[in-house]
Design a protein around this nucleic acid. Structure first.
Lengths: 139, 139
DNA sequence: TTACTTGCAAATGCTTTGCGAGCCG
DNA sequence: CGGCTCGCAAAGCATTTGCAAGTAA
């Protein structure tokens, strides 16, 4: 399992109790379908472990983690921002419309086509967003 | 040029002055790079033609047009929602990071790969979002 | 006529921020 | 001591909504 707490320490972040709690929660949820929590979910889970934590701290902490390249923010079509640990390999997401669960995939072919398209339009590809929204088959 | 005013009438929408004004503005901006206006831009342009129009009306109108399948909403990474007339063919977008301009493209190969990926994960592909973010080369 | 629209201001929902108190090195 | 952090409440920002007055068909 990814250990965000350790990664944060290694990056020189001062780890308070609150930050450790939040790092643990995001680590535990990892890249599982039920992962990619939003601030509210993190806040609720953090409140179970520390009934004094403030949602403002959660917002400040995920922003900090993001700035330090520890986690990544995604804005799917459901509105609220969601977070996941940064991993070695890039990947895109398929979101289950019904449950909100998130699945990861990567496809080098699509990546190279994207680069080609940008090039043809006269652009250097800096970033991209690819999300698939689907319904489970045979449910 | 797309005539949203006419499309709205054909769909049976009651066309008030405000709705006509807004339809014209979105039609004029069309699919050009400077198109895909956000509510604020529409509101500012509408205010030039009708100095009494309310931003609440702009919000209500774009929502209405969207529900009637006349325009489409996009949430690019810059925050505010942007709108464009619905066209026959599907397309995706490349956004110029510096100017905010939006270019359209479509690629059948990517589309079929997307479908395949969803299928392999056990999903029926309902919707997708593909955005490229780039910087102009040779500027 | 009569239901639909509008402008205004107030209310949302999510996120950020000012402030004074607390904590860590 | 001195700078970071935190909790709280207030402020922001984009968007939505209640209401009373106005308008299209």
């Amino acid at each position: 399992m990814i250990n965000l707490k350790k990664i944060c320490q290694d990056k020189g972040l001062r780890m308070t109790d609150q930050r450790n709690t939040i790092a643990d929660i995001i680590s535990e949820l990892g890249g599982h379908p039920a992962g990619h929590p939003d601030v509210n979910l993190i806040y609720m889970k953090a409140s179970e472990k520390d009934n004094n934590i403030s949602i403002a701290t959660v917002y400040r902490t995920v922003k900090l983690f993001e700035e330090y390249g520890v986690i990544e923010k995604h804005d799917f079509k459901d509105g609220r921002s969601r977070y996941e640990p940064i991993q070695d390999s890039n990947h895109d997401h398929l979101i289950d419309i019904d449950s909100g669960e998130v699945y990861e995939f990567s496809n080098t072919e699509i990546e190279s086509i994207q680069k080609k398209i940008a090039d043809e339009l006269g652009f250097e590809l800096i970033d991209h967003r690819l999300e698939l929204y689907g319904k489970k088959i045979n449910k």
